[in-house]
């Protein structure tokens, strides 16, 4: 996607791959430990980290000249947040 052909990206790719596999394993194992409501927090935090590194390294979002693409991602997440937050605001405060 960009001209970083001087140094081989293979090392990055394989480290990301290992990290994603480890993340999956941790998610799976952590689900069987009773942490109360923190089970969901742990699982979603790991999922978000995994999604982020896929986007940043596999989808090459981290390169500086793709600022516009970062804007697309941020805008999308913002509107998704609006959808969920304002709807949940209704459900959480019903009497």
């Amino acid at each position: 996607m960009s001209d970083h052909s001087k140094s081989s990206p293979l090392k990055t790719y394989f480290s990301v791959w290992i990290a994603l596999l480890v993340g999956t394993f941790v998610t799976y194992e952590a689900a069987f430990i009773d942490l109360g409501r923190f089970n969901a927090v742990v699982a979603l935090t790991i999922a978000t980290i995994k999604a982020l590194i896929v986007a940043l390294f596999f989808m090459h979002l981290r390169h500086a000249h793709e600022r516009l693409l970062k804007l697309v991602v941020i805008a999308t997440i913002f509107f998704l947040f609006i959808l969920i937050a304002l709807s949940m605001a209704d459900y959480a405060t019903r009497t």
Binding site: F79, I82, L86, A89, D90, A92, T93, R94, T95
Partner: peptide
């Protein structure tokens, strides 16, 4: 995008929302 539930004022949403 922030105003949609004004279509639902009488539909039973929470008064705070």
């Amino acid at each position: 995008f922030l105003v949609w539930a004004h279509h639902m004022f009488v539909a039973g949403i929470s008064v705070y929302a």
